[in-house]
């Protein structure tokens, strides 16, 4: 399992209820179901991923995040998780609000656009950064709302969203000293646990 998923699963207590936005092939849900007896659902639109979830025995609903979470009641879930999808939705601010409406807490991961390598790529080459965490060209990228660690935290402050926990990890999915000291410069993937 991906290290960011491992980190997230460490944050989630046993028997919790969970909604996983853009759950992919259901790895996280299957893991939590098996090890922590969580109950939950994934939302996904990719057919191959849906099929993989079906096979795994993970609850998955075909639903487009850009159409909102209006079908879920307030505080229906203990946790709403969204890994590496915030930057790909039409309105990250609205989905964040929705996550905190249907969940008590939200867990979010995104690629940090403030990482020094990204800055160097743009600054030195003068071109849109392409890397292992951001593998697309500017014209075909699904990542339409990239942000930095600082952007995200500023937004949380302005929107009265409380950050309960933060982890930044590098491309080897490790959390080094530099990333802990200067997360916006040395963190490649940011992981947050937030609430209102």
């Amino acid at each position: 399992m991906r290290d960011d998923l491992q980190l997230i699963s460490d944050w989630i207590p046993a028997d919790a209820s969970l909604l996983d936005l853009g759950c992919g092939d259901g790895t996280l849900l299957a893991h939590l179901q098996h090890h922590k007896q969580i109950r939950g659902y994934g939302l996904e639109i990719n057919q191959d991923n849906l099929a993989a979830c079906f096979e795994k025995g993970v609850n998955v609903l075909e639903q487009d995040l850009d159409e909102g979470l209006g079908n879920f009641q307030n505080h229906r879930f203990d946790y709403v998780v969204m890994t590496q999808a915030l930057q790909a939705v039409l309105r990250p601010d609205q989905i964040l609000n929705e996550m905190l409406r249907v969940g008590r807490e939200a867990i979010i991961t995104f690629p940090n656009f403030g990482h020094w390598r990204v800055r160097a790529y743009l600054g030195l080459k003068g071109r849109m950064p392409v890397s292992s965490t951001l593998p697309y060209e500017w014209y075909n990228t699904p990542n339409i709302h990239l942000c930095t660690v600082q952007d995200f935290e500023t937004h949380c402050r302005k929107s009265n969203i409380r950050i309960l926990e933060r982890q930044v990890i590098n491309r080897r999915h490790r959390s080094g000293l530099l990333a802990r000291l200067w997360p916006n410069l040395f963190g490649e993937i940011a992981i947050y646990r937030v609430t209102v």
Binding site: N59, E62, N71
Partner: peptide
């Protein structure tokens, strides 16, 4: 079909849905 799915989710049942 989504009415059924939403009813099942609200009731906390195990459900998967594909369109």
């Amino acid at each position: 079909s989504r009415e059924i799915v939403n009813g099942l989710v609200h009731a906390g049942r195990d459900v998967s849905y594909a369109e």
